[in-house]
Design a protein around this nucleic acid. Sequence first.
DNA 1: CGGTTTTGACCCGCGC
DNA 2: GCGCGGGTCAAAACCG
Length: 229
Amino acid sequence: MLNQGMFEEQEMASQMGFVPFPQNLSFLPPLGCHQSLKAFNIPPSLVADHHLPSTTNLTHETLLSSANLKQREDQDHITSDFGGAQLLSLQRSSANLWAWGEVNECLGNNKRIVNDHHLGVATMKMKKMKARRKVREPRFCFKTMSEVDVLDDGYKWRKYGQKVVKNTQHPRSYYRCTQDNCRVKKRVERLAEDPRMVITTYEGRHGHSPSQDDQEDSQAQSQLNNFLW
DNA sequence: CGGTTTTGACCCGCGC
DNA sequence: GCGCGGGTCAAAACCG
């Protein structure tokens, strides 16, 4: 829940026409998304909200951060004071409670070694799938007004699925980072109520930097956006 | 020809 | 237990 102070803060910032993304975060949103926001220079009119449109029973997603587990633990009582830029709520959502609970669980169980040699291929596959779905990374989500569905955030993505979700006319697309050993995913969809809005949800954290080429592209994109805005 | 997208099938979690 | 809906897989199609 946002407290009254934060509402006022947001209101004020909106009137000023700019939402400064906190630069002095010691714990950054996953995946270098802060970089994306910074690069895109997203004003409040375009970052209308931060929530997580998903199948989870989430009512208020946050622009959360996740440098490490301990910091997550400490965030329960933080009212996001980032050097005066109290514009992002840091709150433990139900979805992320679930996510972090599972991360903890997996960390605790990482000594478990299973000998799968005797198992059939199908069973192996199933176990892999279960293992993969066991860990749900923290998510970071923002909403922008954009003609294009996929914002260039400097990373290379490969689409691995598309789904029409219930009660929406626009399909949701699923992307995975193409970098080896990088398991970061993102979902892109258009808001049902306002198709001009694109909702991008990142899951996980990159363990690498964007490619040089893409960074240049991103800068070009950013300049284009600045021009348009 | 290699990387990417498309798309139907499948799996899993959840609510009833 | 069953059905529903979201998320993922993987083969085929596509593309540069």
